[in-house]
Structures are given as structure tokens and as C-alpha cells.
Design a protein around this nucleic acid. Structure first.
Length: 433
RNA sequence: UGCGGGGUAGUUGAGUGGCACAACGCCGCACUGUUAAUGCGGAUAUCGGAGGUUCGAAUCCUCCCCCCGCAGCCA
């Protein structure tokens, strides 16, 4: 009879049959003539039990010397047992040590965040990080599925760019064969070109901001999905955003809900309560709310983290704040024709203090206005000639938005800092590992 | 970048002028159902770096480095 090689997640289907598993030692416990091995294989955790009378003496000896994260191959027969964490355990028949690991630095006890980040390559093996990054995977998968199933074409935009997209944020500069090139901070301008060619498009990739921000909500390298739709107006954009976001939440709850609740100890009823439509609040109304609550807020400015928390504190769903002052938003935002000092922009703010997760709006379709705005923002006109062409040859109303993947994952997982929402975070003071 | 809090054993902390401590981890012994096992024993530190004050500095002073939190900016 041959022994089949299985993963822990599939173990229940092999109850009573001899199987082989390959993985790493999570922990061991010894009880004299009985020894326990907690094995992890990337798909789950499994308690293996060996009695001195049931395994060869040499194998029993190995079980007594195994250390945390040593790599092993074990064989045995799985069976259901209420005493085991997970409900299934393995009656060991043999164990082979592939490599003996000495002094694994991360123990199941408490560590500081900087110690863990220094050991991020090893921290990834721990339970919570495993769940968070699995949520990230399903978030990305849901994003792609939603857009692909709603007629969007994925057309990725360049990471090397010759000019600033929004002109305001700080860019990472690189040498490009003697010329200056910058790492992209948004694919938005290129999306407008592909939207004119394909109608509904999105780009999805890393973006870079050299902002010297050191907060729980900033990375210097983060992932963003940016859909752009030809002929879409602001109200339809909000319809799209809320439907999209609800789909992501539903997919993640379906695939990872139990782990988010049990391993991350996040209150998932807060996620289950998120239903569309989300409240749509005009900037002026939001500003009034802040002033009514006694928040020292300067009308005409953008919202800070604290402002966003106050605005969302009594909400069970994310909210939309639209019509920000034209002055504080990017040059390409379309001014409201009735009230040009406000523009057709919209941010989606998540509840529970997570703040802005989506930023977007309707883009200026008018060539003259766009030229004027480029001048006002002191942007080099030559670099934008191609962008102006989009208004010269069949200009069209269009809207789009950018959703930050790490902020979304952070919200879904209830993290206190988004550095855990990406495998290898890049921050102001961290470039390694 | 500004303000605040920190840097002591592998890790997490206590220690405000007088013998460097504890817990966990690690090593050894015991234990046939452990769940971050338990009990007993053991090893482990240039107290972030450089200078200074002092009979004596982890502790006081000066400069530097690094980390954490908050804010601005933003997804």
C-alpha cells in the first residue's frame, strides 16, 4: 500500500489511512513516554502524537530533540480527536528531520514590532500573519474577479514615469540612462488613455510615494487598483465603488471570516453589517458636522485622520464625502459646473477609524480648462502634451478611482498598522528585509 | 520634518549613584493526553555608541546613532 503525500487542510478526507506530511515544527511537548509535535505545513497546523510503544525508538528519540521551525517529514494515520486543536490529529508512525533549526528567533511569546519587522522573513510563518496575508490574497482575487466580470479590461500602466501625475506628492527619483525618471504614484493619467481606447479599464500594481509620513496609514510602496470608466459620471462612480467594496467584503468573509474572527479576534459583525448604499455627504455638510462637533477644522482644507474618524464614528458602513474644494484636489478633477469652487471628487472613508480607502472622481474633459489648471499648478506643459491629446481627439466625461489594497486589508483584518498587510513593508525607516 | 516616549541576557520588562535582576526562550533531569504543558536544576549581558563628572555610573552631564507613538501629507 502506497503512502499518499497530503496537506494538513485536506487531512480529514484521509482519516484512518497512512499519509505523509512535510512541514516545520511549530512547537513540541513532552510527557515522558508520550510526545506531541505541532506541525505546520503552510496550509494549517496539526498535532502529531507518538507513544513510545508505537514508534521506533530512534524516531521517538528525534521527537525529544526537535526544535521550533526544524523541517520534518512525518508519516502516520489521521483521526478525529476532540482533544486536538483543530479536531484532527495524527498518530505518528515515523518522523524524519530534514534540517535541525537552532535558535529560531520568534517564539510564541511577546515581541516588539520593530523586532518582528527586522525578522519579517520569519514572522510570515506565524499564525496571525498567515491569516492577514491570506486575506490580502483573497482581497486581490476578489478585486480582479469583480472587475473582470463587470467588463473591465486590465491594462497596467508604467512604473517608470517621466513626470508627476498629481504634481504635489513627493516622488522617488531614479536615473534612467542619464535622464530622470520617477516611480509612479498613480496610473491614473495613463488609465484615461486606455479608457478612451477600451471603455472600462483598470490597472493594478505597486505605487510609490516618497512622503516622509510615519503613521499607521502610510507605506512608501503600496498596491493600488485603479479602475477608470469612459462616460461615467460622479453618481455612477459611487454606485460602482460601493458595489465593488461590498463584493470584496463578502468574498473575504466567505473565504476567511472564521480566521479573521478566531485568529485575529476581530469583531466580524462590523464587516457583516456593511451594506450598500453608503451615505453620500457633500463636503460642505461634512465640514459643518466637524464644526458642530467642536473639531478645530479649517473649512476649505482637506480632512486629516482625526477628522475622518469623527465623520465615520457613528456609521456602520463606509461613507462617501464628495465635492471637495477644487483647490485641495488634483489638477485633473472636474469642477462642479454649478459651483466651480467645489469639484466632482469623492473619497470613501471606512469606519472604525480606518479612514480613506478610496479616492477618485470625475476628470476634466474640457481642454481649455485643463490647460489652465496645468498652468495654475505650475506643471511642465510639455510633459502633458499626450494627456491633452485625450481632450483634443474625442474628449469625453469619465471617472475613476483608486483603492488602496493595504488599507482595505488592514480594515478587513482590524489591524492597528498597515505594515502587516503587505509581505515586506517599505516605510520611511525601513527598506529591509 | 515637528512634538512626546524609549534603547539593560536570545526575547519582553524591572532597576535614578554602591554585588546587574525577573519572566519567557535555550540546555539537563523527571513525567503516558499535553494545549503558550508542568516540576526541579543550569548556562546566558561590552546596560545603543563616543566622551565627561565621580572614590564609584545602567543610573548624572554633552554629542551622536537607532526604535516606537502622535501630527502634517495621502491610498
Amino acid at each position: 500500500m502506497s503512502t499518499s503525500v497530503v496537506y494538513i487542510k485536506d487531512l480529514k478526507a484521509h482519516a484512518g489511512k497512512m499519509v505523509e506530511l512535510r512541514g516545520w515544527v511549530y512547537n513540541t511537548r513532552s510527557g515522558g513516554k508520550i510526545r506531541f509535535l505541532i506541525l505546520r505545513d503552510g496550509t494549517g497546523y496539526l498535532q502529531c502524537v507518538a507513544s513510545a510503544s508505537d514508534v521506533p525508538p530512534a524516531d521517538f528519540e528525534i521527537l525529544g530533540t526537535l526544535t521550533q521551525e526544524s523541517s520534518v517529514v512525518v508519516t502516520g494515520t489521521p483521526r478525529e480527536d476532540k482533544r486536538a486543536p483543530g479536531g484532527v490529529e495524527l498518530t505518528l508512525k515515523s518522523v524524519t528531520e530534514v534540517q535541525h533549526a537552532e535558535g529560531f528567533p520568534i517564539t510564541p511569546k511577546e515581541h516588539s514590532s520593530s523586532f518582528l519587522l527586522d525578522h519579517r522573513h520569519l514572522w510570515l510563518r506565524s499564525k496571525k500573519q498567515h491569516v492577514v496575508l491570506t486575506v490580502r490574497h483573497h482581497t486581490i482575487s476578489a478585486i480582479r474577479d469583480y472587475l473582470n466580470n463587470h467588463g473591465f479590461i486590465n491594462l497596467d500602466t508604467p512604473i517608470f514615469t517621466p513626470n508627476a501625475c498629481e504634481g504635489t506628492s513627493t516622488l522617488f527619483e531614479t536615473d534612467y540612462f542619464g535622464d530622470k525618471a520617477y516611480l509612479t504614484q498613480s496610473g491614473q493619467l495613463y488609465n484615461e488613455a486606455t479608457a478612451a481606447a477600451f471603455g472600462k479599464v483598470y490597472c493594478f500594481g505597486p505605487t510609490f510615494r516618497a512622503e516622509k509620513s510615519k503613521t499607521r496609514r502610510h507605506l512608501t510602496e503600496f498596491w493600488m487598483v485603479e479602475p477608470e470608466v469612459a462616460f461615467m459620471r460622479l453618481d455612477e462612480l459611487m454606485d460602482l465603488e460601493e458595489d465593488f467594496f461590498c463584493y470584496i467584503i463578502a468574498r473575504v468573509l466567505e473565504t476567511c471570516g472564521t480566521d479573521i474572527k478566531e485568529v485575529l479576534e476581530r469583531d466580524i459583525s462590523k464587516l457583516e453589517a456593511v451594506k450598500k448604499p453608503f451615505p453620500r455627504i457633500h463636503y460642505k455638510e461634512a465640514a459643518k458636522t466637524l464644526l458642530d462637533q467642536g473639531v478645530p477644522f479649517e473649512v476649505g482644507g482637506d480632512f486629516g485622520g482625526t477628522d475622518e474618524t469623527v465623520l465615520t464614528q457613528n456609521q456602520t458602513t463606509p461613507i462617501f464625502v464628495h465635492h471637495y474644494p477644487t483647490q485641495v484636489k488634483a489638477f485633473y478633477m472636474e469642477p462642479d459646473p454649478d459651483e466651480p469652487e467645489y469639484c466632482l471628487s469623492v473619497d470613501m472613508l471606512a469606519p472604525e477609524g480606518y479612514g480613506e480607502v478610496i479616492g477618485g472622481g470625475e476628470r476634466t474633459a474640457n481642454l481649455d480648462l485643463l490647460e489652465q489648471r496645468i498652468k495654475e499648478h505650475n506643471l511642465p506643459r510639455a510633459a502633458y502634451e499626450w494627456y491633452l491629446d485625450l481632450r483634443k481627439y474625442g474628449t469625453f466625461p469619465h471617472s475613476g478611482f483608486g483603492l488602496g489594497v493595504e488599507r482595505t486589508v488592514s480594515y478587513l483584518c482590524g489591524l492597528s498598522h498597515l505594515r502587516e498587510a503587505i509581505p515586506f513593508p517599505r516605510m520611511l525607516n525601513r527598506l529591509s528585509p
